[in-house]
Amino acid sequence: MTSDERQRRMDAARVRAELTVQDLWLRYVALGGTCDAFDLDGYLQGLVPLETFQQDVLAQTLNEALEDSYRAYHIPLSRPPPDHADDERLSRLIDGLIGDQGRAPPAGSEPPSAGPA
């Protein structure tokens, strides 16, 4: 993807996720982005460049926002499955990131420490 195309797709994603530049900026800051709202606006309009790292943070921000807006239309089943499976998947991933050493015994003698707080 060319950088022009990337920038255009980012702005299209922003519109699709129904975010103002200000709202987008706040979400981007929450993920660790360091540019100000003015820079972001300039980039989305194709006027100024953005560092690759910042572009990545912005891309992730937009992907999450799109996911959220899509999820808002999800229809839950009448009997939703327990989300243990979800938590376990996350905790396996975390183990993958930081190694298995010092892991809690899996037999459930302690509450799972890896869920969102």
């Binding site: 660790g32 790292f53 996350l90 010092g102 890896a114």
Partner: peptide, 29 residues
């Protein structure tokens, strides 16, 4: 960050959740 984003995609969770879970796990250990 890319690692966190990849984990978030696999877990189908926001990066924020993965980050919190990661820190919580390290702290617990």
């Amino acid at each position: 960050f890319a690692t966190l984003a990849a984990a978030a995609r696999q877990a189908d969770r926001p990066v924020q959740d993965v980050a919190r879970a990661l820190v919580a796990e390290v702290t617990a250990r």
